[in-house]
Design a protein around this nucleic acid. Structure first.
Length: 471
DNA sequence: CGACGGGACGC
DNA sequence: CGACGGGACGC
């Protein structure tokens, strides 16, 4: 029934249904009969194709096994991948075959085969979704696409299974009205181009959650591996900085000096274009790596995006792996150092130059827009607006905090040392989102709008009051 | 009257 | 390492 005949030939040429054909890597001495014997228990085999050398007809150790259904192919894959077909033979690989049309020889990952995309009634909750789809297999998670503002469902959802066969079964068996299909994998960070890496709260968050790796988690590392050539060209102790606006040396120096190890900062100005251009040098490549990571794409002043790139520094780029490894380890260390450094750095500036000028060195961030110091309002001043700021893992010392915020805030109270709450009255709040990430760029700083935060603060105040009264 | 087909996510 | 088979030129 399977091989030969019109239907069989058609099945050879197209993968229909999708993901119903397996790509099997096995020993050259395995024959079709053995393959059939081992794969038949998992479903209806429509075709087996053992790839042979054109000239010698020798097996090339690769076979295609076409099943009637994707769930069958997946089950065979899950059961046989990594197993030996016969005693004392090497373990085989079993993957879902790339469709012929794709032309790709990239391995199809389980990740691409375990999440389905469904259309659901808008009334469905994640739990409803889970209830409907759990009969097909173990669900990792369910999610529903919602309007970010109103929170209402858009009638679209994802169900992530543990195994490809479970997702395949769900697609085959669930009500047609769900229009279940495999979900496109989410965009991988590796694919994003270099110029899309901007400073984000997200990356700062990841770092302070005990992840000392100074890059955005493993995903960045993965891009290192896959783009060696680009990195090899890139990494050095020297950076170039360019922007549409000219730089003021002191400001740029201060900005890049936030990363330890700044050796010099040479600002140039092209009289024709009026663009800003500067050369920055750090004492180590690790600092440069971190500075580029943090400041490439940074807007300074706001609206003026900095382009930070590595400059050749004359080092021989001999052993890439060793070089990268050294730098990554060094970067970890410098990240730790920096985490503790920043506080003392702030401390130093405020005590060395006095209260009134302590913040001057940070002025570049906001350029001329930074308001001057405000005098603190009397303690009984009524509060007009409030900010809620969370520091992770630790809040900065109070005097540092005060020194920074006295530019904006007339009245300030630190409610908790664990989670610092600032209650203030300010005319320059719109600047804070720009300033906070720079000042506290090694911290997890969440700044939320006063309106959203009011009840949060009330909660904290309530809790504090309770603590006081119970003691 | 009454519901076609459409379809994408801050991890 | 381990991709079937056909077959070629850009914004």
């Amino acid at each position: 029934m399977e091989e030969g005949g019109g239907a069989g030939l058609a099945a050879e040429c197209v993968d229909e249904p999708p993901n119903s054909r397996l790509f099997v890597v096995l020993g050259k001495d395995a024959g079709k009969a053995l393959i059939r014997e081992r794969f038949a228990p998992f479903g209806d085999i429509q075709n087996i194709c053992l790839v042979r050398d054109r000239l010698t007809s020798e097996s090339r150790g690769v076979a295609y096994v076409k099943f009637a259904r994707s769930s069958q192919a997946c089950r065979a894959m899950e059961a046989l991948h990594g197993r030996s077909l016969a005693p004392d033979t090497k373990p085989i690989k079993v993957l879902i075959a790339q469709s012929r049309a794709s032309g790709s020889h990239r391995d199809v990952e389980d990740e691409e085969l375990t999440r389905i995309f469904v259309m659901i009634p808008k009334s469905y909750t994640e739990e409803d979704l889970r209830d409907k789809f759990k009969i097909y297999g173990d669900i990792d998670y369910c999610s529903i696409i919602k309007n970010k503002n109103t929170g209402e469902s858009k009638g679209l959802g994802y169900v992530k299974y543990i195994k490809p066969s479970q997702a395949a079964l769900a697609i085959e068996e669930c009500d047609r009205n769900y229009r279940a299909i495999l979900a496109e994998p989410r965009k991988k960070p590796c694919e994003s181009s270099e110029h899309e890496n901007y400073i984000s709260y997200g990356s700062a968050e990841q770092e302070s959650r005990g992840n000392m790796f100074p890059f955005g988690g493993q995903t960045e590392f993965c891009s290192f591996e896959k783009n060696e050539t680009r990195i090899q060209k890139s990494v050095s102790k020297r950076l170039s900085v360019a922007s549409r606006l000219p730089f003021i040396k002191e400001q740029l120096f201060t900005l890049f000096d936030l990363v330890p190890g700044l050796e010099y900062c040479d600002v140039q100005r092209d009289p024709h274009t009026n663009y800003g251009y500067a050369v920055i040098q750090y004492s180590s490549a690790a600092s440069a790596v971190y500075a580029k990571y943090k400041l490439h794409g940074f807007e300074y002043p706001p609206g003026n995006r900095l382009a930070v790139a590595f400059l050749e520094d004359g080092n021989d780029g001999s052993d890439l792996i060793r070089k990268m490894a050294t730098q990554l380890v060094t970067a970890q260390v410098s990240s730790v150092v920096w985490n503790s450094n920043l506080v003392s750095q702030q401390h130093r500036t405020s005590s060395a130059y006095g209260e009134s000028s302590g913040f001057q060195l940070l002025q570049p961030q906001t350029d001329a827009l930074l308001p001057s110091h405000k005098k603190k309002a009397p303690p009984d001043t009524s509060v007009k607006e409030r900010l809620f700021i969370v520091f992770n893992p630790h809040p900065l010392p109070v005097h540092v905090f005060e020194d920074v915020f006295c530019h904006f805030i007339l009245k300030m109270e630190i409610i908790s040392e664990q989670t610092s709450i600032s209650i203030g009255h300010t005319g320059a709040q719109e600047l804070l989102p720009e300033i906070l990430p720079l000042i506290f760029s090694n911290q997890d700083v969440n700044q939320k709008s006063p309106t959203n935060v009011r009840e949060l603060i009330d909660t904290v105040e309530q809790r504090l009051n309770n603590d006081l009264t119970s003691n």
